[in-house]
Computed example of a mutant assay.
Amino acid sequence: MVSSSRPAADTRPPRRLIVGITGATGVIYGVRLLQLLRDMPGVETHLMISDAGVLNLHQELEMRRKQVEALAHVVHNVRDIGAAIASGSFQSDGMIIAPCSMKTLASVANGLSDNLITRAADVVLKERRRLVLMVRETPFNLAHLRNMTSVTEMGGVIFPPLPGFYHRPQSIAEMVDHTLGRVLDLFAIQHTLTPRWNGLKAD
């Protein structure tokens, strides 16, 4: 019998990540995240963009909805609360809302599920999967802080996209990639977006 040298087909199901883009400043994080995940084999993205998120795409990046939707593997209408990702039976590795508005944060914190983004987030929490909210506002008022505490107590991760400077970034793009590298670490997704910290340099 002659053995074949052809590698066996990869039958593992794809890793599914749900991505929400809402109406806070910083849509570059959501768009760049989709670009990065699109090029990663074995990762399937499910995208929703709120109406305010669409406005910010145009304001901050001069991009149209369809341009961003083309970066995702599956696109869901934010009003379609009957979509697959609205059910706990939909298998995913978790969800990232990038950026996350204070309105979306409040809806998640209080379990309102008033659109598909917040419903999907609610499902991720109840199924004990990873939810990362890249919240964008400054300064925070007490309601914002209390909502962040509530989400944290439910198992979510509050991840304000604050840039690091210890790696001496030379551009906004490097700062964005460094932040998203930290987000991908939370999902154990391998990347080479930024060098790892090896301790302070000696004089």
Rank of each mutant, 00 (worst) to 15 (best):
M1T: 15
S5R: 13
P7Y: 02
A8D: 13
R12Q: 11
P14T: 10
V19E: 08
G20V: 05
T22E: 06
G23H: 02
A24I: 08
T25I: 07
T25Y: 02
G26N: 04
V27Q: 01
I28L: 12
L33C: 07
L34E: 05
L34H: 05
Q35I: 12
Q35M: 12
Q35N: 15
L37E: 01
D39E: 15
G42Q: 04
E44G: 02
H46D: 12
M48N: 09
M48S: 08
I49V: 14
S50L: 02
D51A: 15
L55T: 13
L55S: 13
L55A: 14
N56W: 09
L57Q: 06
E60P: 08
E60S: 11
L61Y: 06
R65H: 11
K66G: 13
V68T: 04
V68R: 04
E69Q: 15
A70G: 13
L71D: 03
A72L: 08
H76A: 01
V78D: 03
V78E: 02
R79Y: 12
D80Y: 06
G82N: 15
A83H: 02
S92W: 10
G94E: 06
I96A: 05
C100V: 01
M102W: 11
K103H: 10
K103P: 00
L105S: 00
A106E: 03
S107R: 12
S113W: 04
D114H: 10
I117F: 07
R119H: 13
R119D: 06
A120T: 08
A120N: 09
A121E: 03
D122M: 07
V124R: 03
L125G: 05
E127T: 13
E127D: 14
R128Q: 07
R128I: 04
L131Y: 05
M134I: 02
V135I: 10
V135K: 00
T138S: 11
P139G: 07
A143L: 15
H144W: 11
R146A: 10
N147A: 07
T149K: 14
S150K: 11
V151S: 00
T152I: 11
M154G: 10
G156M: 05
V157Q: 10
V157W: 09
F159K: 03
F159H: 07
F159Q: 04
P160T: 08
P161Q: 01
F165R: 03
Q170V: 10
S171I: 12
I172A: 10
A173I: 13
G181M: 06
V183P: 00
V183D: 00
V183H: 00
L184E: 00
D185Y: 06
L186H: 08
T192H: 15
T192V: 06
L193P: 03
W197E: 02
W197I: 03
G199H: 06
D203I: 13
